[in-house]
Amino acid sequence: MLREKYKDEIEQILSRYSVKRSALIPLLYVAQRDQGYVTEAAMKEIAQILTLTPPQVYETITFYTMLNLKPVGKFHIQVCKSLMCALVGSDSLIGWIKTKLGIAPGESTADGNFTLSAVECLAACGTAPMMQINDDYYERLTEEKVDRILADLRSTGTSQLKSGPFMWPEAPKAQV
């Protein structure tokens, strides 16, 4: 039960809003972090916390692309396919990942490690092509960079190639 496991966090979330339902998406994130997707039990529990009906929780989830009602891979690779990225090669990048992982967008690898999605604009058009893996952005991608990222993820679960606080073009380096 989320309520026991994340008691403080849930209380903190509820305290931010004067109308309880506002806490719905934040609570769904808590549930999704816990199980990787929003389970039916979680929907019911959250409905109860917020005095909503389960269908109200459900309808909200289905509107948003980031909330999952089914499990996704350990690493969810979302490559932007919108025009700005497509202009500089996102389609071939998707093709590259497809051959690397053997899965098409919408599919997961058999080991459950990777899920590949082609998604719409993620607000990184100046550093295209780009992708998001779980919480992190990876930008100015090349095939070689993608290979390193995938290798990093496989071996360490994370990659140093992910973006830091965003700025492009970069600021001039401090003079030593």
């Binding site: 929907m43 269908p55 459900y58 289905t62």
Partner: peptide, 20 residues
């Protein structure tokens, strides 16, 4: 005041559903 129906999905794929 029952709130048993849910418009699920979005755009043309919106479908009126019930829970789960």
């Amino acid at each position: 005041d029952v709130k048993a129906l849910a418009p699920a999905g979005r755009g043309t794929m919106t479908e009126i559903k019930h829970f789960g």
